[in-house]
Design a protein around this nucleic acid. Structure first.
Lengths: 213, 213
DNA sequence: GCGATAATAAAACGAACGTTCAATTAATTC
DNA sequence: GAATTAATTGAACGTTCGTTTTATTATCGC
C-alpha cells in the first residue's frame, strides 16, 4: 500500500497539528512518540516526516504559532486611546479568553520550553517577552497617571500573568462557573491588585461584562 | 570492580535525590535517563536500583516528600488564635519562602504529575488539595468576619496560589530584588486582592516585615 | 489516458532506553 | 581473621525511540 484514497496533504497536516497538541498536552513532548502520534492521526509514522522534518520542528511550529496567535489576538483586541484601566481590562479579558480557548496549546507552550534547542527557545521567549511587555507598559502608564497604585511594575506584571494563565489549570467548561463569571471575577481581582482608583470594577463592571464579552 | 572504597549507602542515596531533582527540573522526567543521573552522581546506572526500584518510584518519592515538607512547614509556621488577616499573611510568607528555597523540587512536583501512575497521582493531589484547603478556610473565615471582601473563595484561593507559586519562574537569588522585598510586595498585592480591611498591609506592614521575616 | 507529482506504506537503521543479573570488592560483625 | 553483609561494577536483555529509504499507489494537469 502507499497513497490511500482520499488522502489530502492539507487535511493530514492539520490533523497532525491537532493531535500533537492534544497528545503533548496530555503526556508531554518526550513521552509522546511519533508512532503514537501517527496512530492518532490514522497514518504511518513515516508519513509525518512529509510535514515536519523532525519532532522538534513540530513542537517549535506549534509553539510559535500559539505565541503569534496570542500577540495577534491582543493587537486586534487592544483599545486605542483608552485610559490605562480600560486597557488593562481589555488585556485581562483577551488573555483569559485566549487561554481558556486554547488550553492544550497553552500547556504545550508553557511546559515544553526545555525541549527546544537554545536558539529556538530564544525565539519563543522573545515572543513571550514582547507580549508581557505590553502589560508592563499599561501598568507603568497607569501608575504614572496615578490611576493605579503599584509598588513594582515588573513584579506586578508577572504576578498578574501567572494568576491569569493559571486559570487553565483548574477551569473546565460547563462546570460551576462560566467563562463570563470567571473573567468578571478575575477582572475585579486584577483591579484591586493594582489598586485601581475606581472600585467600580469590583462591583458595577461585572454586570457590564455580560455585554462586552 | 565492585564496591568502591569509602562508599556509603546513605550518602549515595542523598546524592541521587539531589541530582535527580536538579536533572528532572532542568531536562524533565522523561528526558532524564537513569544513566545520565548515575553519571551525575558518579556511579553506574545499576547502582541506582539499590535505592529506588524503578524510575517512577524515584519521582514519586521526590514529590511526596516535597508535598509533605510543604504541609509540615505550614503546620510549623501557622499562627494559632490569630485573625484571618494575620493567618493569610503567614500563609503567604511561608508559601513564598518554601518555594523559593526549593525551586527545583517545586518545578518537579508541579510539572511531572503526568508521569505518575493513576493512584500515585491521586496521592500527590490529595496532599496538594489538603494544603490548598487551608488557604480556602482562611479566606472563608475572613470573608465571613467581613475582614476580607471576596467574590468566590475557591477561585480566589487558586488565583493566589498560582500567583505566589509563579515566583519561582522568574525569581533568582541575588538579582534586583531580595526575598524580603518580593515577599513584602506579594503580601501587599495579596491583601489588596482579597480586599482586606486594613490597608495597613499595603503601606505600613512592609516595613514591619523586615523584622518578621 | 498518460505522465508527473503528491501522499503514503512497509521495512529497516542504529542508538538509547529502563532494568536485571552475576560477579566482585569494601566494610562490618563476631 | 573468617564470615557476613553492604555497595557497586560491567555486561547484557528486550524494547522502543526518531528517522531514513525504497517502493507503491492515488490524484491531477494536459
Amino acid at each position: 500500500m502507499a497513497r490511500t484514497t482520499g488522502s489530502d496533504g492539507e487535511r493530514t497536516e492539520a490533523a497532525v497539528r491537532e493531535a500533537a497538541v492534544n497528545l503533548i498536552a496530555r503526556y508531554g513532548y518526550e513521552a509522546m512518540s511519533m508512532r503514537q502520534l501517527a496512530a492518532e492521526v490514522g497514518v504511518q509514522a513515516a508519513a509525518l516526516y512529509r510535514y515536519f522534518p523532525t519532532k522538534e520542528d513540530l513542537l517549535f511550529t506549534l509553539m510559535r504559532e500559539h505565541m503569534e496567535g496570542l500577540r495577534a489576538a491582543w493587537q486586534h483586541a487592544r483599545p486605542i486611546d483608552a485610559d490605562p484601566a480600560e486597557q488593562l481590562a481589555a488585556y485581562v479579558r483577551n488573555h483569559i479568553a485566549f487561554h481558556i480557548e486554547r488550553r492544550h496549546a497553552t500547556h504545550v507552550s508553557n511546559m515544553e520550553l526545555r525541549s527546544l534547542s537554545p536558539d529556538r527557545l530564544t525565539q519563543i521567549l522573545r515572543l513571550r517577552t514582547a507580549y508581557e511587555k505590553e502589560l508592563r507598559t499599561i501598568l507603568r502608564e497607569g501608575a504614572e497617571a496615578a490611576i493605579f497604585s503599584i509598588e513594582d511594575t515588573g513584579l506586578t506584571a508577572m504576578a498578574l500573568i501567572q494568576m491569569m494563565t493559571g486559570v487553565i489549570v483548574w477551569f473546565r467548561q460547563g462546570e460551576r462557573l462560566s467563562v463570563t463569571e470567571v473573567t468578571a471575577t478575575y477582572l475585579s481581582m486584577t483591579m484591586r491588585l493594582v489598586g485601581a482608583r475606581m472600585d467600580t470594577y469590583s462591583a458595577a463592571r461585572p454586570l457590564d461584562l455580560q455585554r462586552t464579552l
